[in-house]
């Protein structure tokens, strides 16, 4: 198993993929999370399970500064505290009703989530512009082989043939998949971004082929 040393931080998504007032599912080594952005733009990460009936919170909805479960509308603040139980509108929810939360940081268009209360900050990625994310069944070793380059401690791979334009930020997920954030270097145009996206897709296919042939072992 290839280990990256981004400390407790996992790059879970790109900022552009989480608009204001939305929630998406994501994964960190501790399991599934609900990643959401309030209407005022504040970012939060909570365990992907409503403590009421176990429903996945990433299927829920954001209203104002709270995340609500889609099953019974129980609402959670950024702190994880339950603030509203619609079946009992007059009831102040007990303190004990909480969704577990995780530290979350956003830097350079990438959203990072920490598995523990981290005093550190996530790695800084200088001069890189996020383009898109994709998941693959290929492991990190297979992606390195396809790219002809080794990953840095932060999980950055600069593909040998596209070293001037492209950089991949890798994150191994607990379900065996790898999340790839495609980052661009320098000035770009619409055409160069499309071209870079295609290069990244080819690399993913090549890595998956290598994975199937067992070269990643």
């Amino acid at each position: 198993m290839h280990t990256l040393t981004t400390g407790p931080w996992t790059p879970v998504a790109l900022s552009a993929d989480l608009p204001v007032g939305t929630v998406i599912p994501a994964r960190i080594p501790a399991g599934s999370i609900a990643l959401w952005r309030s209407e005022s733009g504040r970012l939060s990460a909570s365990a992907d399970r409503c403590p009421h009936r176990g429903m996945s919170l990433s299927h829920g909805f954001v209203r104002g500064e709270n995340l609500s479960c889609i099953y019974h509308g129980w609402s959670y603040a950024r702190s994880g505290k339950c603030v509203r139980i619609p079946a009992h509108p007059g009831l102040e929810p007990p303190e004990a009703i909480r969704a577990k939360t995780f530290a979350v940081e956003e830097a350079g268009g990438v959203i990072w989530v920490a598995t523990d209360e981290a005093a550190t900050t996530p790695p800084v990625l200088e001069g890189l512009m996020p383009l898109r994310s994709m998941t693959t069944s290929a492991g990190i070793a297979a992606i390195e082989a396809a790219a002809g380059a080794k990953a840095t401690a932060e999980g950055l791979v600069v593909p040998a043939e596209n070293a001037d334009t492209l950089c991949l930020l890798l994150s191994a997920r607990d379900d065996g998949q790898t999340l790839i954030h495609v980052l661009l270097k320098g000035e770009t145009t619409a055409d160069s971004r499309i071209a870079a996206s295609r290069v990244a897709e080819s690399l993913r296919r090549a890595a998956e082929d290598l994975q199937k042939k067992g070269i990643a072992a």
Binding site: P51, H52, R53, G54, I85, A87, H88, L91, A96, I97
Partner: peptide, 8 residues
Amino acid sequence: GMEIPTRA
């Protein structure tokens, strides 16, 4: 313990 019920 696993889940939290209310009056409803």
